[in-house]
Simulated assay, not measured.
Amino acid sequence: MIVVTAPTGDIGSQVLHGLLDAGEAIRVIARDRSRLPADVQGRIEIVEGSHSDGTVLNRAFDGADRLFWLVPADPRAASADAAYVDFARPACEALKQSRITHVVSISALGRGWLKNAGHVTATLKMDDMLAATGVSYRALACASLMENVKRQAGLIKSQQAFYWPFPQDQAEPTCATRDVAAVAVDLLKNPTWDGFAEIPMLGPEDLSFREMMAIASEVLGQPVTYHEMSDEDLRGMMLKRGASEGMASAMVNMMVAKKEGMDHLVPAEDRSNNPTTFRTWCEEVLRPAVLAA
């Protein structure tokens, strides 16, 4: 039995479908079962509630041996530590009392970065805490996700513009959520691994935002111009949308660390686990999103 958290999110839903296609027995933790597709609900066990709740976790972990762990975004949390470390504390206690032996978690690049990198620093603390329970643990250390571009599909369609606080000519790794989910599914289907390790999710290539928007322009058949925001613009935008001061600062700190080279700490030696190019992603994910915006 595999427990899947965040089963209605972008990555979690793809992990859920991949495991179902493989014939695995699945139990999900979901705040609202109505958000799960009707054709899926009859094929899985559902425990309603939050996976920050120890009682919910104990029910979900009963009889299970594997876990897919993903912390949902919470921009209103008091801080990044509250959003990740404190959120995961009940899971640590529940894991110690369960029969779960293998955990796959969605994490971030940045191991070895010495400055505060906001979300990344908190995520790595969470990884260490969960791994310390004694389970075999694989952290999928993600670069920035291509899906971050999709979040601005409406602006891309209406204003032919994309806004982000990053130098336009600085090349960075990016990965597609489909590739991250595929690696998670493979690890959960084949739990022959042990110990604690990180698996870098770097995508197949490093691209600058200038290059990415040029590709998007070609695929969409319309110009898409990149606009570099300031860090303070990002902070202000998050606060205006309801984020806490702590989470807005965490986002800014993460972006500063990325600009200073955090995502290049891992040598890009083997990228075969992330085959989706940005062009393919634009053709198959971004273009439909922009057309529907």
Rank of each mutant, 00 (worst) to 15 (best):
V224H: 08
A131V: 00
F61L: 15
G9A: 12
E228F: 13
A88M: 05
R151M: 06
T123E: 07
A83Y: 09
Q152I: 07
Q170G: 07
R241I: 08
A83K: 08
L130R: 03
T55I: 09
N190T: 13
S244I: 08
D65M: 08
F61E: 04
L291P: 03
L265V: 14
T174F: 13
A80N: 07
D127R: 07
G42N: 13
D127E: 12
R241C: 01
A182P: 05
H102A: 01
A216P: 09
L187Q: 03
A292N: 15
E284N: 02
A216G: 02
H17S: 13
R43P: 05
Q159P: 07
Q14L: 02
F68L: 15
D179G: 07
K115I: 06
G23P: 14
D81L: 02
L130W: 04
E228M: 12
M238W: 11
K258L: 13
D62C: 06
A132D: 14
L114E: 14
E205R: 15
N273C: 08
L95I: 13
L140Y: 09
F166M: 15
Q160V: 02
G63H: 01
R111N: 05
E48F: 01
R99Q: 14
D65H: 03
S272K: 15
P275R: 05
A176R: 15
G236S: 03
A94P: 14
V120G: 07
L140F: 01
R43Y: 02
K240S: 15
D270S: 10
G112P: 11
P275V: 13
E172M: 11
A176K: 10
A60K: 02
K150S: 11
E245Q: 05
G246Y: 04
Q170L: 12
V266Y: 15
V290M: 05
G18K: 05
R31I: 06
A80G: 01
P191L: 06
K157M: 14
P37N: 08
A108L: 02
L145Q: 05
P90K: 09
N253I: 08
G42C: 09
K240V: 12
A91Y: 00
T177K: 06
M237T: 12
N116R: 11
M201W: 14
E283D: 06
M254F: 09
K96R: 11
A60S: 06
P223C: 05
N274C: 15
M201K: 01
S272L: 10
R99C: 00
E232R: 07
M213C: 03
V15N: 09
F68V: 08
E172P: 02
D81P: 02
L36H: 05
R31M: 06
E211L: 13
P173K: 05
M237F: 14
S158M: 11
G9D: 03
G203A: 10
G49W: 12
G221Y: 05
L202D: 13
A6N: 05
Y84E: 07
L207G: 07
T192K: 15
S208T: 03
L130T: 00
V252K: 10
E232D: 10
R76Q: 03
V85Y: 05
Q97Y: 06
R76F: 00
L286K: 08
V3A: 03
V256T: 15
V149R: 01
E172A: 00
A122W: 08
V40A: 06
M129E: 04
S98W: 04
G63Y: 10
V256G: 10
P7K: 08
Q97E: 12
G54Q: 07
R43Q: 15
P223S: 09
